[in-house]
Design a protein around this nucleic acid. Structure first.
Length: 431
RNA sequence: GUGAGUGUAGCUCAAAGGUUAGAGCACUGGACUGUGGAUCCAGUGGUUGGGGGUUCGAUUCCCCUCACUCACCCCA
């Protein structure tokens, strides 16, 4: 700590936080699982910048979306350009595809990415201003089977990272051909029922009547039940796509519920939308979500390339994951005197060359204090080097878990560690 | 942006207007200078989030402010 003179401690910016080593270990495990599983489905990582031109999101995410109208971290850089910390990932991939003419590669394209996103929201449980997503996108595949496969992949991932009780809400929001008619029908119904709606919903009837569906007022819910459903307004193509999508979910035997009121806050979705929700997460119960966006690439001036994707929120995932990080295995060096210290340093170098993690500390300690320290920091092995060991040339190795002690040359001792670790499936046995 | 709740040691919490703000855990050291976990003892650590007010006296009551939490809106 710094001096206590009226200095104010510097805290992180609201909605942002440090991830300390113990928790970071879990993040590493989750990210490693994601990579492993996504690669298993042919996805490849595509890393895009965190900072993008503001216009990318105004056009991609949608100028009327909540994200763009009130949640972006936008500022002017020293060159006078308006830049934005990305609030989501999809527009960046679309930009990269056009930039690098990736559409000329064999289709479909499968990309994944994991990293921080930024939205200027009011923080609450499961919601931060800097949060992290893992994101997958597929381009150039119109078949509804891919929409289902992405969800199947998500379930495999959830299983791998010990997230249980995930259910899927699915819907189709139609396309620019069928959506306008529905929007009009819904607006008319909402206006007609205006006197039965709360003041909040009366306002929604104008702006976004779909939102009336998830109002908690009993009278609004009652009125909403009489409103037309999007699924009754889909055009032939969209209806077919939706039917096929559901049939593949059935094939995988994935649990889902059709939620005709599921609207997502991003403007670009067409046809399939879905949300992965989980219990015990409080109000922000969506652990993942996504859908199809068949027109975004074209609207950016690129080729007519359809897209579909999924984003998973890592903070929320970790809030419900039962994953536990195994304690790290390593050797601690207990020594006495300068000569033994030097012998320890060289021994640790040899250990590390063989892939055995070591921690060596430089505080002079009694033997008892050394062992106490080794125990406290969780060492699995303690290497003992004192006067006796220096003169005999044989060091000692203590197995801290079994309280067994060995004596031998440094080569012999490393062999013991390696064999034992293998048997225990310790760090040397893992991939 | 709106609403509610909470701020006391690193963590979890006491102290209900009255001496020098305490305890457990954690940390450091000792009992114990060639062997850890247990036990016992001691020590470090606080502008009670900050500012103002009421009062002889405020951690306690009032106001402002900041932070955190939860919820609305929306989303991961």
């Amino acid at each position: 700590m710094s001096s206590k003179q009226n200095e104010q401690a510097i805290s992180p910016i609201k909605g942002m936080r440090d991830i300390l080593p113990e928790e970071a270990r879990l993040w590493q495990m989750v990210e490693a699982s994601a990579r492993k599983i996504f690669e298993l489905y042919g996805f490849r990582e595509l890393r895009a910048p965190i900072l993008e031109p503001t216009e990318l999101f105004e056009r991609g995410t949608g100028a009327s979306s909540d994200i763009v109208t009130k949640e972006m971290y936008t500022f002017t850089d020293k060159g006078g350009r308006s830049v934005t910390l990305r609030p989501e990932y999809t527009p960046s991939v679309v930009r990269a595809i056009i930039e690098h003419r990736l559409d000329l590669q064999p289709l479909p394209l499968r990309f994944y990415y994991t990293g921080p996103m930024f939205r200027y929201d009011r923080p609450q449980k499961g919601r931060y201003r800097q949060f992290h997503q893992i994101d997958v996108e597929v381009f150039g595949e119109q078949d509804a089977a891919i929409d289902a496969e992405i969800i199947e992949m998500a379930y495999r991932f959830f299983q791998e990272v010990k997230v249980e009780g995930v259910s899927t809400l699915v819907n189709s929001v139609g396309c620019p051909r069928c959506r306008p008619a529905y929007g009009q029908a819904l607006r008319e119904a909402a206006t007609k029922a205006s006197d039965r709606l709360c003041t909040d919903c009366q306002r929604k009837a104008e702006i976004n009547p779909l939102r009336i569906f998830d109002c908690k007022q009993e009278s609004c819910q009652e009125a909403a039940r009489t409103f037309p459903r999007i699924t009754d307004y889909l055009c032939e193509e969209c209806r077919e796509h939706f039917k096929k999508f559901l049939s593949y979910l059935d094939l995988y035997q994935l649990p889902y519920r059709i939620e005709p009121t599921l609207v997502r806050g991003l403007d670009y979705y067409t046809k399939t939308t879905f949300e992965l929700v989980v219990e015990n997460l409080g109000a922000q119960n969506a652990i993942g979500g996504g859908g199809r966006y068949d027109n975004m690439v074209k609207e950016f001036g690129g080729p007519d390339l359809c897209g579909t994707g999924l984003a998973i929120g890592l903070e929320r995932l970790l809030l419900v994951s039962k994953l536990e990080a195994p304690a790290p295995d390593f050797a601690y060096f207990a020594y006495s005197g300068e000569q033994a210290r030097q012998a320890s340093l060289l021994a640790a170098r040899y250990f590390r060359t063989l892939g055995i993690p070591c921690i060596i500390e430089f505080k002079e300690r009694s033997w008892k204090a050394h062992f106490s320290r080794a125990n406290k920091i969780g060492a699995t092995w303690t290497v003992i080097i004192g006067e006796d060991e220096l003169s005999s040339g044989e060091y000692q190795l203590k197995d801290m878990l079994e309280s067994k002690q060995y004596k031998g040359t440094i080569e012999q001792l490393t062999q013991i560690v390696i064999e034992k670790e293998k048997a225990r499936q310790g760090i040397l046995g893992r991939d």
